[in-house]
């Protein structure tokens, strides 16, 4: 079985689906001739031509807006936003148009498509190449949000995303784009959207995370001593729709929860997780829910590793929650 990094897995998924489904088109800045600034679309224009792999002008609202039109017409666009920090010129198109099209038209005009975008810090990218804007979109009804944490998941989830009937925001953790490597089966396989994964079963503390933070959590467990508290590590993989069953089952078992996310703490996705657990499993809790998150500051440059949840901070939160 080949060993891929996340970029190669994404590329493989795109190639497989483009070969299979002539309606899949790829568009974005620098995705064609150059193959994408992270090389995720490398070689696709060579194989599928300029009509199906389009280099667009530099305008995110145009990329998403025109992709919506293509979806309305029956194509399955996979639009790339080069960095999720640059997604905001397209915010209106995503939030007011894409997410609402099926609803506002009473089902007359669905617009299934995928938006791929690298997100997250830890690459010395400063304010504008590091943000994690998932919560803005999770707050918008009509969008599904998928965040893989491994090459295997990236491929299986992206193949599912391209076959969904709903708009998908597919956020790729760029910090581990190349660092996360693993065996990826050749050919087709899918991972259902909406299913979390218990990465490490345990009975002591439920640790909820997604994307690059999974690796921070695993490091806390494996190298910072948090393993002694027997944590159950859950990779959400999909934020919307959320696999509440898996989360609650774990919380009812452990009675203790640590939530790890790298976006600013306030109103981050962890706040929603915390609220759901409080609503549905309060009497099972033995300790306050802990959140380890980014700070409520713009994303810093020099001190980014201090800003991001570190294995040490996560290990400390797990220990405190376990001992409470």
């Amino acid at each position: 079985m080949p060993v891929y990094n996340i970029i190669q897995a994404v590329n493989d998924a795109l190639r497989i689906e483009m070969r299979k489904n002539g309606n899949i088109v790829v568009l974005g800045e620098d995705v064609g001739n150059f193959g994408g600034v992270f090389r995720a679309t490398s070689g696709l224009q060579e194989e599928f031509g300029k009509e199906r792999v389009m280099d667009t002008p530099l305008a995110e609202a145009g990329i998403i807006g025109s992709a919506i039109g293509m979806a309305l017409y029956g194509l399955r666009p996979v639009a790339e936003i080069q960095f999720s920090d640059f997604i905001f010129p397209a915010f209106d198109q995503i939030v007011n148009e894409l997410a609402k099209f099926r609803y506002r038209s009473g089902g007359e005009y669905p617009a299934p498509m995928v938006i791929r975008t690298p997100y997250g810090g830890g690459i010395r990218g400063g304010h504008y190449h590091s943000q994690s804007p998932e919560a803005y979109f999770a707050h918008t009804p009509g969008l599904k949000i998928v965040i893989p944490s491994s090459p295997y998941d990236a491929k299986g989830l992206l193949l599912s995303a391209m076959r969904e009937e709903d708009p998908i925001l597919f956020m790729e953790p760029k910090r581990i784009y190349r660092a996360a490597r693993g065996e990826v089966p050749e050919g087709e396989y899918t991972i259902p959207i909406g299913q979390a994964k218990v990465v490490r079963p345990g009975k002591g503390v439920t640790v909820l995370c997604y994307g690059a933070m999974l690796h921070t959590v695993l490091e806390a467990v494996e190298k910072q001593g948090a393993g002694e508290f027997d944590p159950e590590v859950i990779d959400l993989r999909t934020l919307v729709p959320l696999d509440t069953d898996t989360i609650l089952e774990s919380v009812r078992k452990t009675g203790r929860v640590v939530i790890v996310y790298e976006a600013p703490k306030t109103c981050g996705f962890g706040a929603e997780l915390s609220a759901i657990i409080a609503e549905k499993a309060l009497l099972h809790l033995e300790a306050p829910i802990a959140r380890v998150a980014g700070l409520d500051t713009p994303f810093p440059y020099t001190l980014e590793m201090e800003y991001l949840p570190s294995p040490e901070r996560v290990a400390k939160a797990i220990a405190e929650t376990a001992r409470f």
Partner: peptide, 23 residues
């Protein structure tokens, strides 16, 4: 195509439909 109340947002959609038809 069912519009929103937002101004000019339908125009990129018009372009996308036309691009798709051309493809």
């Amino acid at each position: 195509v069912t519009m929103s109340s937002c101004i000019a947002t339908q125009l990129p959609h018009a372009v996308g439909i036309a691009m798709a038809a051309k493809i």
